[in-house]
Design a protein around this nucleic acid. Structure first.
Lengths: 184, 184
DNA sequence: GAATCTAGTTAGATTATCTAATTATATAAA
DNA sequence: TTTATATAATTAGATAATCTAACTAGATTC
């Protein structure tokens, strides 16, 4: 909501931005000989960029008083709404987090009356979770902002760059999801 | 340390992986007409990938009992070690977090005796923070793993892809750091 | 010299996680 | 069919990384 962090610190012996160069020098000194340093440089940039991207998204979402993780779950509930059975366990598996973490997120969503929990007839241990009408209304409200924030991350790439970037992102995302054993 | 999450849930009515397609359909229905949907698709992938990348790094670092944020700060202390004055405030500004958050991170690093705090002669309010010999030894131990993890994120891109990806990453990272007003 | 500003810390909260224990139900085995 | 085991969800309690607000102690300004 605040945009950049409001300056808490005024005058200041500011630190210069180092850029990536000194990191690469250090890498030269400390990387194992088996490490592909060109690849590592790209990985480092990806790590930094990934961090910033999440920061931006949470910043933009904060005006809707929701965080990326919660929206992520709500979206998942929406997209799987056709399933006959949608349990916290299955959601936890898909998201790569523990059931107890899903419980906490669901409690939050339920408190706002965006989802309902129904106990499952055919197996009394299980709970079927579904997004309800109010939850859908909320999605309608927040998603335009969500998509435009996604787009804003990319906007100054030209068409050629986007095409290549798209290919690479799909490849990397696919591979990393396999590695982690999770994914949307 | 565990690699993938150890399976807590056994049998399971597993949820299928949806892939990006249904997200795009939903985007078609809910994005504002001003939103560039091709860009938004890439942004969404970046968001997902960024998330995964941070997960992988924290997973790999967990065997050294340090997290990405703490290592990030320790690295920054190392790379700015030549400065005459390096204060928590300046670090907070560079990292885009509050001074009190830096205090917490520094306490953690200090408890392990990797850094020292010295009060600054010329201004009694300020503290000069420096990485010490033990901190440097720790960096020597952890960095090979850190770099190889960075490299592992990228390893299956070919030379051509890497070259263009590099260009795009630098551009995006630069722009996003300006937008957030922070950066390394 | 009194009021104000600044740096750092502390106190206390929130969010997203985790593990371990608990409860209730279901399944398998004796 | 009782008993043991397994599973699903939740609860209890912890940790990490953040935040804001209040506080302390120096520095600056008027």
């Amino acid at each position: 909501m605040d945009g950049k962090l409001t300056k808490e610190n005024a005058t200041e012996q500011q630190l210069p931005r180092l850029g990536i160069a000194p990191y690469l020098t250090l890498m030269g000194d400390t990387a194992s000989s088996e490490t592909d340093q060109d690849a590592a440089q790209l990985g480092l940039l990806m790590l930094w960029l990934g961090d910033h991207v999440l920061d931006i998204m949470d910043l933009e979402l904060s005006s809707y008083s929701i965080t990326e993780s919660k929206l992520d779950l709500l979206l998942m509930l929406f997209l799987h709404a056709d399933k006959e059975l949608l349990t916290p366990s299955a959601l936890a598996d898909r998201m790569g987090i523990r059931r107890s973490s899903v419980t906490a997120l669901l409690n939050w969503l339920e408190k706002r009356n965006w989802i309902n929990r129904e106990s499952y007839d055919k197996d009394g241990r299980m709970t079927h979770v579904r997004i309800n009408a109010e939850g859908r209304v909320f999605l309608q409200q927040v998603l335009p902002q969500f998509w435009s924030t996604c787009a804003s991350l990319i906007e100054d790439l030209d068409t050629e760059e986007r095409k290549l970037f798209s290919k690479v992102l799909l490849k990397l995302n696919d591979r990393i999801e396999k590695r982690l054993g999770v994914g949307r």
